[in-house]
């Protein structure tokens, strides 16, 4: 079956969207011509990141927040990421359980993704899948990261607004937060706020926000909100806060800045990935890699000169040639 995927996607075919996403996940070359065509239709969606420890209630919060956004008449795309097993490569993607009722809302598109070995709380193809949803016309795209703990910082590159979900009693006291985690949040959400200890978490976060110049930046003091997602409490306020952050980003030109940086990083990363893929394939297929590894292992050669030699051969950088000659 031949199909004009780009046209189908722009005309609203969820099936074409679904297949393109699979190709992106599989790094199937059929994806790229389609991406080239739909790219100019991207850049309209607002991208939210939802992150936090396992058990923080991210899926339920995503579900209820989506319902809140839908009541404003906006359409929503959700990318829910779960970890792949490093041993079997398989994954159980369970985030849809909490979002069952959204499945049949035509204004919502949910895609579950496995990390497939990628670290940082998202998968390698997440950025591309977000672009597909953007071109598909979703107004707001929510990326729900893996609940891997306290070092999911990759989301900051992808999202316009990042919400860090905390809960009382899970042992993720603010003190135990690794450096750099608090700084990723544009909005703090203390979920399950009907539990004992919620006010203490709020107080601790507020104190940190006040003290830390990396968190409280020019034009924006991250708000600390309370929600009880399972009882649908505090979601309207969360959406207002997101909207407020967005307004600030737009007014100050920071949204443009943020997106510029994102595009820069993405472009570099894509070039990096492609170069790496080509070089690796060539080295592997020719059997050269095996020989090189043997040489290094036997200490006949060292990996540093090999690196310079190979990159020098592939990319004719004058600097390299100068140094190796």
């Amino acid at each position: 079956m031949t199909m004009d995927y780009a046209r189908e996607i722009l005309q609203g075919s969820p099936r074409a969207v679904a297949r393109l996403m699979s190709w992106l996940e599989d790094e199937d070359e059929r994806a790229y011509p389609v991406m080239e065509e739909i790219y100019r239709h991207t850049g309209k969606a607002y991208i939210l990141g939802i992150t936090g420890s396992p058990g923080a209630g991210k899926s339920t919060l995503t579900d209820k927040l989506t319902r809140t956004i839908r009541r404003k008449g906006l359409s929503v795309g959700i990318v829910a990421v779960d970890p792949s097993s490093p041993f079997t490569g398989g994954a159980v993607l369970g985030d849809r359980v909490r979002m069952s009722e959204l499945s049949i809302d035509p204004g919502v598109y949910i895609r579950s993704m496995a990390t497939r070995g990628f670290l940082g709380g998202i998968s390698k193809a997440t950025a591309d899948v977000v672009k597909v949803l953007d071109a598909f016309g979703k107004d707001v795209i929510i990326i729900e990261t893996v609940g891997v703990g306290q070092d999911e910082v990759d989301i900051i590159g992808l999202a316009d607004t990042t919400c860090l979900i905390l809960v009382p009693g899970l042992g993720d006291g603010i003190q135990s937060m690794k450096a750099g985690v608090m700084e990723i949040a544009d909005i703090f959400v203390v979920n399950k706020a009907d539990r004992a200890g919620a006010d203490q978490v709020v107080a601790e976060v507020c104190a940190r926000v006040d003290q830390d110049s990396h968190i409280k930046v020019k034009d924006w003091t991250p708000p600390v909100l309370k929600t009880v997602a399972v009882e649908d409490q505090g979601l309207e306020e969360l959406w207002q806060a997101i909207d407020g952050h967005r307004a600030m980003l737009e007014k100050t030109g920071k949204l443009h800045e943020k997106r510029r940086e994102r595009i820069c990083n993405e472009t570099l990363r894509m070039i990096h990935n492609e170069l790496f893929r080509v070089v690796r394939e060539q080295l592997q297929d020719s059997g050269q890699l095996d020989n090189l590894v043997t040489d290094i292992l036997d200490h006949k050669r060292d990996p540093y000169s090999i690196m310079r030699e190979i990159t020098g051969k592939w990319i004719s950088l004058p600097q390299h040639q100068k140094e190796t000659s």
């Binding site: 899926s59 339920t60 159980v92 369970g94 359980v97 909490r98 069952s100 399972v230 009882e231 649908d232």
Partner: peptide, 11 residues
Amino acid sequence: IFGQFRPKEYV
């Protein structure tokens, strides 16, 4: 009044 509930499923 209370809302509907879907528990997290553990596989």
